[in-house]
Design a binder for these strands. Sequence first.
DNA 1: TAGCAATAGTTAACATGTTAAGGGAATGGT
DNA 2: ACCATTCCCTTAACATGTTAACTATTGCTA
Lengths: 145, 145
Amino acid sequence: MSKSLPSTSRSLPIALIRAREGVMYPIRKMLSETGITEQQWRVLRVLIEFGRMDTKTLADRSSLLFPSLTRIVATLREKGLVTQTRDDKDRRRQFIEITPEGQRIIDERTSQAADIVTSFKKTLGEDDYEALLDLLARLDPGAQD
Amino acid sequence: MSKSLPSTSRSLPIALIRAREGVMYPIRKMLSETGITEQQWRVLRVLIEFGRMDTKTLADRSSLLFPSLTRIVATLREKGLVTQTRDDKDRRRQFIEITPEGQRIIDERTSQAADIVTSFKKTLGEDDYEALLDLLARLDPGAQD
DNA sequence: TAGCAATAGTTAACATGTTAAGGGAATGGT
DNA sequence: ACCATTCCCTTAACATGTTAACTATTGCTA
């Protein structure tokens, strides 16, 4: 008979937004000094972690929708942070690769970003931090449990 | 010496996005039949739960930034789902109130939305579901622990 | 091999997120 | 009364989220 909704203060979607807001605050503060956005940072990090890849894979690994990624890659290319080359075997596909300049931007802030991660681990405690990541993964349809 | 970043697959911001994506998928599907967006739904729900209130309070309770709320309220007003009246005592302030038509839209979908909530509780289990909400609240700077 | 479906990616249109600036109204101190 | 400050809200500008339509290329298949 659960025909009523929970109070908005116990709503899962809202809780996810608010948590994200809290987590992103120091990260956005850090990124504001770099001139790149949170999503651009994410794309560059994925490119560093996995290397050159096609747009579809990049969208998937960055958790970005295709149209968003199209725009973001265009911006990054204009900034000289990535290169975009067409696949000769399948001319529909494009390969994206990070440039040394892109590498540099991430490298310069990696230590600072790691400190932010550490501070959240301290806030929750190592165990709760890992437990949270596991719980979140169980809500992700893309994750293979 | 933790100077390196976690793999993007264990990144807290990314995990929050992906979990949110998973949670929102069925909700967006449900909302697509109503003609209102997720944020508009959230605003209407807050108005039902707490009643008439000023814009600032509404923004806070809806977890929306002021500029976003300005646009959303304008849209809802045009749709006839809320009314906006100026405070006579302090003419800077505006009061927002839901209309019967707005009420109706939420009422018609409340049972459906409750089912979605139930399905996520079942996915995680009641205990883990509550644990997740508590963990998320600890990341929310606005929540008073 | 002509035709049709599937795939990779872009473009369009509208709503929201985010930061900064602006505008009108109350407030506090002088 | 005067003025700076603060407050509530709006507007602007740019980036992203989201869905749908579209282009180009490839693959399948009758």
